[in-house]
């Protein structure tokens, strides 16, 4: 059995302003296997509430959201399970 998480995709929307990260998430979700997880990396502060609101509007599950950092700076990692 294949773990749905392993089929997931990643959207790097760092540096983009809303609504672009949400549009990228929606485009990735449309191509994703139902039940798989799309990971979104973002830096816009509006992405945090807006990804959560998108999940509610699209019946997707927000698996987790956390701020993290690498050598490019702080960014938000959101994990969304596509319905």
């Amino acid at each position: 059995m294949v773990d749905a998480d392993e089929l997931g995709s990643e959207v790097d929307a760092r540096g983009m302003r809303c609504p672009l990260p949400i549009i990228r998430l929606a485009a990735a979700a449309r191509l994703a296997v139902p039940g798989s997880v799309v990971t979104v990396l973002s830096t816009d502060p509006a992405a945090e509430p807006d990804i959560a609101a998108w999940c509610r509007m699209r019946n997707a599950e927000l698996v987790g959201q956390e701020w993290t950092a690498d050598d490019t700076g702080d960014f938000l990692r959101s994990r969304v399970r596509v319905g």
Binding site: R17, C18, P19, I22, D44, P45, A46, E48, P49, D50, A52, A53, W54, R56, M57
Partner: peptide, 24 residues
């Protein structure tokens, strides 16, 4: 109340607290 229309570039704290879309 969208961030790009505010001087601060922060989204509306009201919309964020309500858990509704802040863009558009």
């Amino acid at each position: 109340g969208s961030a790009c229309t505010a001087s601060t570039l922060e989204p509306s704290h009201v919309l964020a607290a309500m858990g509704v879309l802040t863009h558009g």
